[in-house]
Write a protein that binds this DNA or RNA. Structure first.
Lengths: 203, 203, 203, 203
DNA sequence: GATGAATGAGACTTCATTCAT
DNA sequence: TATGAATGAAGTCTCATTCAT
């Protein structure tokens, strides 16, 4: 009926987030009940409301965290615009795979549960997603200008690349036949060709 | 109370399917209530049970129909194995785009609502999906054998291509700047390069 | 799980209203649960929602019904403005008592549960209540003009009279020592004196 | 975590009472949550339990305090039974108005929230209320015996007077057109007439 | 003296589904 | 063929209350 010995707010909140991410990825936002979520971490459903004002805010918290992490990590990893477009495209490709592979649940949420957001929350997340996409478009445009890439429409190409790379998380398993390194290599080759990189330059 | 003049079972069932496809694509399977679905076509919720034994069967009906249509259309459109791998890859690419573009709702369901299926129903749909994928893998393998294509792993490449092509439906709008024909052209170029088609051959 | 033999919507709705009136009068709106209300008439709580979209609408339905009945009955019972103010005051007094005595629960709700209404619903009911009060004020004013009454402020006097008369329902019991007729007689004497009716005229 | 400098038990308890009186009058006992009450005075809900064992006891404390204040003040204000009934009736009337006008919230609670009391607590309050009423009945009876008053049934008349006087608090506002003094004057005239005071005697 | 964490009960409400009509 | 009445389970969320700190 009251606080349990040794219980701690910060730890509990982290546990909620972690369990919610896992369960929503597995069964979907609508299919997740607060009761079930509480159970998962040994709590009554009511206790969740000390940490999140409602169910929607859990989802939004997860998605906005995911996008913030992505943007922050990418800000660290991206190459300076003074570098060649090909190098920058490679950096993007490898970063995207490496960042997303261990975050399959978050990626899944980011694609599948956008529609479960309220319109306001959706707008916030969508803006973040666009910012990331814009960076890739810029790289492709630079490559076209330089003549080092030969693709058609940078916007369309960017979407094709992101769809292709993000799709990896739907089938990748740590126990599968391909290691992350191998996947990075294979996909970088595909991206490079797809974007029309001059063959000699890649080698 | 009684049958309304001119009401017709087959037409009603089609109306249910059509409304369900639209509503589930918009709001998700869990978020769709039978009451709402009935309303949409001017029926009480109870009437739906004349056509489908339960809600799950509506979803399964939609998804299995979608896959059957896909497989049947592809059976018609695919080229004989005696044709060149490049021709067959082009046929696949153009077919995939042309078939999916006007079926955005169905595509969406096929990706988003798999998890809402019961395990048995899921297995059925998954098998169909695999069959389609296998055909693309075969084409890529043939191209490698012929030497007309130069990609790494046909299985991985096939998934990358399908993810890339299917992603189109998430942003394509009839009112957008690109026509279906232009999209087909752009994507075929990308697929060809990605799969390592010898450049002179494409032209 | 489904309709019971011989069940009937109109009868059920009436039963809900009647039970709600009784229970809210007894225990208050907030203290009444939908489960309890359903139980009272042998229904699950969910069934109530076929008849009322939510709990608030039950209360509002009760209160607005009560006021409508009051206004309609009073429209029937009031005397023409051509009659003497004293006669009209007597008519009001007797009407008010006679109308309210068998409606103790409704009267109680009308006073106690106004605050449980949403602001919009409150405004609707308040307007009705004012209309009724205005009629009494008009009678008192006419009496002052005629010289047949001698009270101070018609508005204040009207409120005093209504408070006094309405208070009857808080203690009146059918099994008590006073009959409705006796109560009417006693209160009419008090009202007449309070309003300063010339003594000879009452006799 | 620890006592804040200058916090003081007695002052805190008074603050709780004061806030509870205001909030319950505004929104009702059932609608008041302990969390909200704590917030109102800058305390966590749990802290309230240092001062009151439970929510019911807060309400009971308020109501019994209200009645005790009333009875004590009336004991001070009432005239000796040796004085004339008319004087004593006037004293009661003026006292009742003067005492209740600045205590609108308490009056409101006393009428509206009786039903929120447990049966035992209700009995306690009801007894106090009766004691007060009995005094007025005695005055009216004395007036009848003296011949200075001419009303019918002292018990009924007493209730009518109390209902009428108490009703003032439902509409009185300090900012309204009538001052407390004017209200006392108007109501005393009405009470005197209602009770059948010989006209020359009032003047 | 007061808080922060948690609970269990129970609130309103919606849902898929059933069955008499 | 379809509806209208009803159900039981479950959903999100709030509440008074408790107890370690």
């Amino acid at each position: 009926m009251a606080r349990r010995v040794g219980s701690d707010g910060a730890r509990t909140e982290a546990a909620i987030r972690e369990a919610a991410l896992r369960l929503i990825a597995r069964h979907g936002y609508e299919a997740l009940s607060m009761r079930r979520l509480g159970e998962e971490i040994g709590l009554g459903a009511a206790a969740l409301y000390r940490y999140f004002p409602n169910k929607q805010s859990i989802l939004f918290g997860l998605l906005s965290q995911h996008m913030q992490d992505l943007l922050a990590a990418w800000a660290d990893a991206r190459l300076s615009p003074t570098r060649s477009a090909l190098d920058r495209l490679e950096a993007f490709t490898l970063f995207h795979i490496r960042h997303h592979l261990p975050r399959a649940d978050g990626v899944f949420l980011s694609y599948m549960e956008l529609r479960s957001l309220t319109p306001e929350n959706f707008a916030v997340i969508e803006t973040m997603r666009r910012r990331y996409e814009r960076d890739l478009i810029a790289v492709l445009s630079a490559g076209l200008a330089e003549g080092s890439l030969a693709c058609d429409d940078p916007k369309v190409t960017a979407r094709a690349i992101i769809a292709m790379l993000t799709g990896i998380t739907t089938w990748f398993r740590n126990t599968g036949p391909l290691s992350p390194d191998e996947i990075e290599e294979i996909y970088w080759q595909m991206v490079a060709r797809l974007a029309g990189a001059s063959l000699k330059e890649i080698a």
